[in-house]
Nucleic acid binder design. Structure first.
Lengths: 337, 337
DNA sequence: GCTTGGCATCGTAACGTTACCGGATTCGAC
DNA sequence: GTCGAATCCGGTAACGTTACGATGCCAAGC
């Protein structure tokens, strides 16, 4: 039907009076085929525009040459996480370079994460999975390890099992962010968290607590914002804090959208970052550099994270029983330009 | 290898002493199978966790149940286009709802767009293609029509051929943006364009020209910024304009990143939007609402664009020879909150 | 001359699915 | 009691690919 008839091995074989087997082997430079035959086969293959049929191969070999990334989409907001875009860019490009195509499986907040993964691995349509948004005791890890499905996680979790992951050292980053604010004289420091049960938020909180404990500052729970931040909710949350009787003098933002929301709240009150409230932020998209504000920034190259995820997954597929690779990305704060 | 042995039709058939054919038919509620048999088959299928093998089916039927979106990635910058994220979200969710999985094929600026499409359609790994970033006289349209591959384009082009597309009426939007700036008294109006050969930029320019011609204002080429805008280049471009002897009093931004760059240039000079320079912008991510500036905004729901693209593509796949569906999205400007 | 062994190639089967045709049983109608 | 039709099911082949064993051939060794 579509695109007329595609060239296949049988046609090439017929044209050269060879067997399908020989053609198949010649095209992958099998050592059992005479070099001159290889040359003839490749010439014809190129002429007729032969491209191996993905499904025939997948059916026979069990390899799909497809990787699937499970990404949560916050349909409540226009943008869930700006850093997801460079992550997707990195993932797709790295996958392509490695000879895989990348399929994206979006989950909505209504989807059960475990069920999603289960359906994916049953469908047998990918050689490997990339899972994100790890939660405490994430059940997907055990499930995937048990089933022997190659996977890599973006983020760690608090399980005793070894599994392959790439993660950003949120604990250290939050620690340094809090210290940075203390260095500027802040003692009432607000901490922005995105998702409550998120593993990233948990480690962020741990770094914050460590810095506060070292400085002997008691934790004020009202300064810790937990749960599902959007630009709107971030602005509303910080506005409430600013309106309180003892407002914060420092703020550690979780990401670009959280920062924009907080800046919005400040702007409406005529407050200026760096003067009235000190701000440090995560910003993986270099957005903060272009905001007219005096803000300290920590950034991670998310495209690079995508590349690393694919690399780890690739090695996992090549050697499913080998040692698990884990990558923990450190980072450093830089002051705004 | 992976995940042990998957349940297949043969196993279910053996367990029930039925033929593979009957099981296959029962699972799709074929009218030729006795209802009680259907029930028995479905019960066993559910128990053993049967999921149809994608590749077996694809090989037999020629249907892959996969859609591929060809998306350009500007690897030069961290973020190419923020609106791409909600677009991807809409595409993936709509594809899933329609029973397809969505594969993303990223192209770098080094890739030849035509060659990319050619490789994709030869690989026969998708039932339909979504192409974006249309250029003038886009050769991919003819190629895909000739090959009979179902596709939908995000954006129009200047060909005489009818083909399915979803597009935003950039001409009208740019026209209204220019008029809006004129209403505020601007006569020297700068126009931001993103990609030089882009079809979207061409229509934007046309709308700008129409508004300027109606007002009898001659076009000053130096006020039209063409080519590959990033936040950095946008800031540098607008800074140059502000430094000129006859700086613009109005600016129409192309998207969120262009806006951020321009705001940055203004901020460094101590200029204030709405007072020194009037600004209107495209903003499909509602980012501008959270910037402390007095800016007029035009927004389009990109997730909705994704849904519409999938819907058009779906109808195209269902009826390849039917009339081509085209959707042109209008929009309205709203002042900033 | 007969075997040995390496080389180049071939034939067959299989992956899981569905399309197509054919066969068996039942039932009502003449 | 025979016939046609309806209902339900089975067998075979095929999609395009690769794995595996088999086959023919020629040179070298005894």
């Amino acid at each position: 039907m579509k695109s007329g008839d595609m060239a296949n091995l049988k046609q090439i074989a017929a044209e050269l009076s060879l067997s399908v087997t020989t053609v198949s082997r010649a095209l992958k430079d099998g050592p059992e085929v005479h070099p001159s035959t290889v040359a003839r086969v490749k010439e014809v293959a190129k002429r007729v525009g032969y491209v191996p049929n993905h499904h025939g191969r997948a059916l026979k070999t069990g390899q799909t040459l497809t990787l699937t990334a499970v990404l949560p989409m916050e349909t409540r907001d226009y943008l869930s996480d700006l850093a997801k875009l460079p992550l997707i860019e990195g993932l797709t490009l790295a996958a392509r370079q490695a000879g895989y195509s990348l399929s994206i499986y979006s989950t909505t907040p209504d989807d059960d994460p475990v069920e999603s993964v289960q359906r994916l691995l049953q469908a047998h349509s990918a050689d490997g999975l990339i899972i994100t948004r790890m939660v405490s005791g994430d059940p997907r890890v055990k499930l995937l390890l048990d089933q022997g499905i190659p996977f890599v996680a973006f983020g760690r979790t608090d399980l005793d099992i070894a599994y392959p992951y790439v993660d950003i050292d949120n604990e250290q980053i939050a620690y340094e962010a809090t210290r940075r604010l203390m260095d500027k004289g802040c003692r009432r420091i607000a901490l922005q968290l995105l998702v409550q049960k998120d593993q990233a938020s948990a480690t962020r909180l741990a770094g914050y607590r460590r810095a506060m404990a070292e400085a002997g500052i008691p934790i004020d729970q009202s300064l810790i914002g937990d749960g599902t931040f959007t630009m709107e909710s971030s602005a509303a949350w910080f506005d409430r804090l600013l309106a309180s009787s003892d407002p914060p003098t420092g703020l550690a933002c979780a990401n670009e959208l959280g920062l924009l929301g907080a800046l919005h709240a400040l702007g409406r009150r005529g407050l200026v970052p760096g003067r009235d409230v000190h701000i440090v932020t995560r910003d993986n998209t270099r957005l903060a550099r272009f905001l007219p504000a005096n803000i300290d920034v920590h950034s991670v190259d998310m495209a690079d994270v995508g590349h690393k995820l694919i690399a780890v997954l690739e090695s996992r597929i090549a050697n499913p029983l080998g040692p698990v690779a884990t990558i923990l990305l450190q980072g450093r704060f830089e002051p705004a330009e």
